[in-house]
């Protein structure tokens, strides 16, 4: 749809007193792309995301989000952005439905509030006060409020914290739907490697306020290049072509290969390796 990147960050820096939270970060997110930010606690994910949202100021660096500097963005820019922050404690006395339909009013072309509530799976709780929601349900409301304005760019800071496995799958479907048919650009942070793998076109790993890796999930685990390990009852072999090896083994055993496993380094292995086990 658009050629220019949705997000372009160069040399971003932010310090809090003596703490350097973001230390010269570069990041590009293309229009329509889904990018996951991974990184240990305190790596600078929230700081980075909130600077891109215009919620925090930066000390240095060039930032362009949907053609504007978020530090000086106007309301029309805000109308094109959706935000799900890492934590929230507001709206307590309102109901789910009141909250979503209130926020729908701010936007020029909002989604139907009922539909959004349905999408995040809160229909049964639509008339419940927000303060009575469980942690995961509250989080789903945050997601509903983030998408009700039909954003072109959506920021999600650890959106699925507290989701049960079913809700997480459902959320993944929602994100795929927004990114696919909706054409929405999405930048999300997460601690779930499986989630990054399932959703993201690209994974950027932040450590100490810097990007240490930025690639597709597949490239990151080196699936294209790394050798696969094939193990069976009385053997183990590394290979570039596991299918051929298994075919050979099958003929040798004249059927099922006993205790056959085929393993590749997981994203988790690569990630833990990247951030260095000590950090």
């Amino acid at each position: 749809m658009t050629e220019t990147p949705a997000i372009r960050v160069r040399g971003l820096r932010r310090t809090y007193g003596d703490t350097v939270a973001v230390a010269g970060l570069d990041l590009d997110v293309g229009a329509g792309e889904v990018v996951a930010l991974l990184g240990p606690n305190g790596a600078g994910k929230t700081t980075t995301i909130e600077i891109l949202e215009g919620h925090r100021h930066r000390d240095a660096g060039a930032v362009n989000v949907l053609g504007h500097d978020p530090a000086h963005a106007d309301l029309d820019w805000r109308a094109r952005i959706g935000i799900v922050t890492q934590d929230s404690g507001d709206l307590g006395e309102l109901t789910v439905h009141e909250s979503v339909s209130h926020f729908a009013h701010y936007y020029p072309r909002p989604h139907d509030p009922e539909q959004v509530i349905e999408l995040v799976g809160l229909t049964a709780k639509a008339t419940a006060r927000v303060r009575t929601l469980s942690g995961g349900q509250r989080r789903r409301l945050d997601v509903a409020l983030g998408i009700v304005g039909r954003p072109r760019l959506l920021f999600l800071d650890e959106p699925t914290t507290g989701f049960d496995p079913q809700a997480r799958r459902r959320f993944w479907d929602l994100i795929r739907q927004l990114a696919g048919a909706g054409g929405c650009t999405i930048l999300l942070s997460t601690h779930y490697l499986q989630e990054a793998e399932a959703l993201a076109d690209r994974v950027a790993v932040i450590v100490g306020g810097r990007i240490v890796a930025d690639a597709t999930p597949a490239a990151l685990v080196g699936r294209a290049t790394a050798r696969t390990v094939v193990r069976w009852s009385d053997g183990r072999q590394e290979t570039d072509d596991p299918a051929a090896l298994i075919a050979t083994l099958t003929t040798r055993y004249g059927g099922a290969v006993p205790e056959l496993t085929v393993s590749r380094p997981s994203l988790e292995d690569v990630y833990l390796d990247l951030i260095g086990d000590g950090s």
Binding site: G54, H55, I83, T85, Y106, L145
Partner: peptide, 10 residues
């Protein structure tokens, strides 16, 4: 977080 959420909306 009320103000932050409102600031995030147009």
């Amino acid at each position: 977080g009320t103000l932050r959420r409102l600031r995030g909306a147009p």
